[in-house]
Structure formats: C-alpha cells, structure tokens
Computed example of a mutant assay.
Amino acid sequence: MPAEWELHERTWMAWPSGGYTLGETPSDADAARGAWAAVANAVGEHEPVTMVVAAHELGQAERLLSSSVDTVVLPLDDAWMRDIGPTFVRAPDGAVAAVTWVFNGWGQQDWASWEHDARIGSEVARLAGVETVPSTLVNEGGGLHVDGRGTVLVTETVQRDPARNPGWSRADVEAELARTVGARRVVWLPRGLTRDSERYGTRGHVDIVATVTPRGAVLLHDQRDPAHPDHAVCATLRRTLEAAADAEGRPLEVVPLPAPRTLRDADGWVDWSYVNHYVLNGAVVACAFDDPADDEAAAVLAEAYPGRVVVRVDARPLFDRGGGVHCITQQQPARLSTGGPREEEAPWSS
C-alpha cells in the first residue's frame, strides 16, 4: 500500500444520504451536506474527486459541489468512504489494485446499516477500472495507516474486535495484512480515543490517533489536559510507539500533535483530532475546530509535509456525526512505471 503522500490519481468520497448523518431536521441535513461539500471542493482544487451519491441526493450534491468534483450514482447506507471503500495498493510493476475488505458496520453496531455499503469497495474498484484483491478480514480504511515501506499502524480493538474478526490472532491479522497491503512490520496500539470507543464510535480507529509522515516520524494525538480521559490514553499510546520500530528496524520518532483545547461538547468528552487530516497532491486538508490550538496544529502539519499548502476545513459537523476529514476521503494512487517517481519527486515537494 503506497503512503498517502504519494502521487494520487484521484480521491473518492461518498455523499451523506440519510439516517443519523443527515440528522432529524433540515438544518442538520444542510450542515452535513455543507461539511462534505467543503472537503470535496477543497480536495478538488488539487486533484480529481469522484463523489458516490445516492440517487435521491444527486440534486443536492450537484448544487453544492464544484465543477472539479464528478458524481456517480450508487446506493449508499452511510458516507464514510475511508471505511466502506476499497484500500488501493500497487503491484511491483506499478499497476494499481483495490483491496476489498469485509465491511460489517464497524463491528455490527446496532445503529449501523451496511446492506449497500458492504458492496461499495467492489463497486469503486470497478469504476476505477482496477483489479480487486478480496480479503476475508473485516476491516476499514480508517483502521490502518502505512508508511508505504511496509510499516502498518493498527489497534487491537479494531482488527481483533470479536464482533469483526472472532478468533483471529495477531499472527492471523498480520499474515492477511502482509498478503493484502504488503505489511512487513505491524505496530499494534492497544486502543483508540475515549469517545471513539463508546457506543457510537468505531471502537478505536487509528486514523484519529496516530499517523506516519514522509520522514518516518509518527504524529500522535496529544491530549495535554489531565481532566480529559484521553490524557492517560495518549500517554499509553506514546509509550507503545516509543518502544516500537518500523519495517526497517528503526525506532519510531513520536511527534506530538496537540489536541484541541475544547474538552467537551453536548454529548460528552470530544475526540476532535488534528491527526484526522488528509494528505493529497500538493496539499493537506486539515481539520479545524475554531479552537485556540488550530494554529499550532496547522504549523505542525506544515512542517511534517513540507512543500504542501495546509487547507483548513471546519470539521465540527463531521465529528458531530462520528468522524473527520480523513474518514470521508479515500485516495487512489497513481499508476507508476517500475521505479517511477514517488512523493519525493513530485513537483510540489521541491
């Protein structure tokens, strides 16, 4: 699996279509549509975007999306393309393929439906014109991060969730990740953030906790306020990462990425996270929260991804619904000739 910062052919997204994502009132629905459109339009300034839209929402989508965003009509249950879509990989000859995980509503959550979403991975692969690599692992794209060189970050509470993969050992998961995404070293984090571990969460996706950067450092969510339960969670995660190594055997360097200073919303402790950013051609689309930490986080991201512009999008409506910018985007890497240019040779990195 190529690193997210490598050259993309396009970004895939899914439009909010109903249920809790659109909410109970017209204003709730407008907020959801506006948030998804803001991310899509920001990405569309830098690379092609394809938005999967349910037929009954096509008019709303086309009204809000810029001309840089294409639409395709498919049935949807939800709008988290990172999780319901395929994970794109490259063969040694540079050809792109799509790993199609089993999707079961984030571990058969009683609030989720997945009749249509379980087929989106294969449908997107078909639309992208690439071969599929079917997997029997119940997994979501938000449940792993890679450095493009064989290091994979995961959490015990996702891939080894009994409601996802009952009976799977670490070795079983690692073997399947080696087969599908080329994992050579799997770094197991014990859990995710507090709110994401509650009823309406994913049970611990890594993509709001930690991510790798082009120079090999790991950005880690850093909750600095002892009043928030994630303060202790982050300390445990840091110890785990500092004791780990990448696929080349090099110790992981941990770079703290501050948590927003806002601790609670109407529903309890927030899991707002700047880790949940999206790296694309020439840019980073970053979560913003109208929070005093927004500027510091943007500066850390700018240093982590030199040569890219950091574009901020208000992520509060996304997190109100259970995710962030990374959760609603999925990159399709460019096909490369053998030995072709990777990110470090891209025009924006000079």
Rank of each mutant, 00 (worst) to 15 (best):
A95W: 01
P251C: 10
E198I: 01
L220N: 01
L189G: 05
R179S: 07
V270C: 14
S122V: 10
V53K: 06
E6S: 09
S27C: 13
D246L: 11
R185K: 12
R215V: 05
A315C: 08
G34Q: 11
A297I: 10
P226Y: 15
E198K: 09
A178L: 08
A97M: 05
H145Y: 10
A244S: 09
A118Q: 11
A210Y: 11
I84V: 07
G44W: 12
R185Y: 04
H46L: 03
A128W: 13
S169L: 03
T136I: 05
R195N: 13
L193T: 09
L219Q: 00
L189M: 06
A95L: 15
A283L: 07
R215W: 06
L257E: 00
L58H: 02
A266G: 15
A14L: 09
G268D: 10
D290K: 14
V209G: 12
E24G: 13
L189N: 05
S27M: 15
A283Y: 01
L219G: 03
V133I: 05
G201M: 09
P292I: 10
V49R: 02
G322F: 08
A97Y: 03
A283W: 07
P48H: 02
L65W: 08
P214R: 08
R195V: 00
Q109T: 13
R321A: 14
V39N: 01
R149F: 06
L177F: 12
D246N: 06
E45K: 14
P75D: 07
A334S: 12
R10T: 01
R321P: 00
D161A: 05
G129H: 11
G85W: 06
G23N: 03
P214S: 14
V89W: 01
C287Q: 10
E9C: 12
A243W: 02
H145I: 03
R308H: 07
P306H: 10
G216L: 04
R10W: 06
V99F: 15
A283C: 10
T262W: 04
R119I: 03
G268V: 00
G107E: 09
C287L: 04
A235K: 12
R82E: 05
H205Y: 14
V130N: 12
H46I: 00
Y305C: 08
D314K: 06
L219V: 01
A29D: 08
E115L: 15
T329K: 07
A244P: 01
A175T: 07
W188V: 01
H326M: 04
L64P: 03
W111E: 04
R164T: 06
V310Q: 05
Q330Y: 05
A42Y: 03
V285K: 02
E345M: 06
T213S: 13
T155R: 11
A183Y: 00
A243P: 00
D161G: 08
R90S: 15
T338I: 07
M51W: 00
G339Y: 02
L22R: 14
T262I: 09
T155I: 04
D161V: 00
R312P: 04
Q108M: 13
T100V: 10
R184V: 02
E47G: 04
T155M: 08
T11A: 15
T50D: 08
P86I: 01
N165A: 14
D93N: 11
S67Q: 13
T194D: 15
G148L: 09
A247Q: 09
G44V: 06
L177G: 08
V233Y: 14
P162M: 12
